[in-house]
């Protein structure tokens, strides 16, 4: 194993740790939001600092590898991909934190009917599933799994697109729950963006392994 191999392995371990941390954050924000658990929400809020610190550490390690080892070919693509994946994962961490803050800042538990009709829990389940799949794709260097992510994002898009009319109808009959409704629609928007971030990660995995750039390409 060359010195560079050792450094790349260390970087891979760190980004896998980032995947796990952010997936945990998303799972906990689901528990906090759906179960209206402020304790868990505060935990997510606290752990956001760990996500940020790990992001900075990975950024620094990528910078060092560029400066000290001048990686080329697949090594270069790997470090470039890790740098971008790191940024995407950190944003997903921000999203989990943001959703948890709605729980901390809201007076009463969310109306169960509102949770059900907006399908927000389905979005959480799919976001966590996509995160898990994309980590598996990265870990096992499997572009087939990475490509599977793109279809899964369709569900998040569909729920997001329908959310406006669903919530509009709900507010008409529940005028006292406007604040809650706004929090739910905000969470839905954030979960839809999570899907986009995971798709970006999948694109970076394909770039790393196949040297193909899928950004801004409609057919993937």
């Amino acid at each position: 194993m060359t010195h560079l191999d050792v450094e790349l392995k260390r970087l891979k371990d760190e980004i896998v740790e980032m995947f796990e941390l952010v997936t945990q954050q998303m799972k906990k924000s689901q528990l906090a939001f759906i179960g209206f658990d402020r304790e868990i929400a505060r935990e997510v809020n606290f752990n956001e600092k760990r996500v940020n610190a790990l992001e900075l550490k990975i950024d620094k390690d990528c910078e060092n590898i560029f400066a000290l080892f001048n990686p080329v070919a697949i090594d270069l693509r790997f470090v470039l991909a890790v740098l971008k994946i790191n940024s995407n994962l950190e944003r997903i961490g921000d999203i989990a934190d943001g959703i948890s803050r709605y729980v901390i800042g809201t007076g009463n538990p969310f109306d169960k009917e509102l949770i059900d009709i907006t399908r927000v829990n389905e979005m959480f389940v799919m976001a966590v599933q996509m995160l898990s799949d994309v980590q598996k794709a990265f870990d096992s260097e499997d572009t087939k799994i990475a490509r599977g992510i793109f279809q899964k994002d369709d569900l998040l898009d569909e729920i997001n697109e329908n959310a406006n009319s669903v919530i509009e109808n709900y507010i008409r009959s529940h005028e006292g729950n406007i604040s809650q409704s706004l929090h739910i629609i905000s969470a839905i928007r954030k979960l839809e963006r999570t899907g986009d971030q995971v798709k970006n990660v999948a694109e970076e995995i394909i770039f790393f392994l196949e040297a193909k750039v899928l950004k801004h390409v409609s057919e993937k």
Partner: peptide, 8 residues
Amino acid sequence: TQSYVTGR
């Protein structure tokens, strides 16, 4: 080529 340029 990949092995050579990456030092492996």
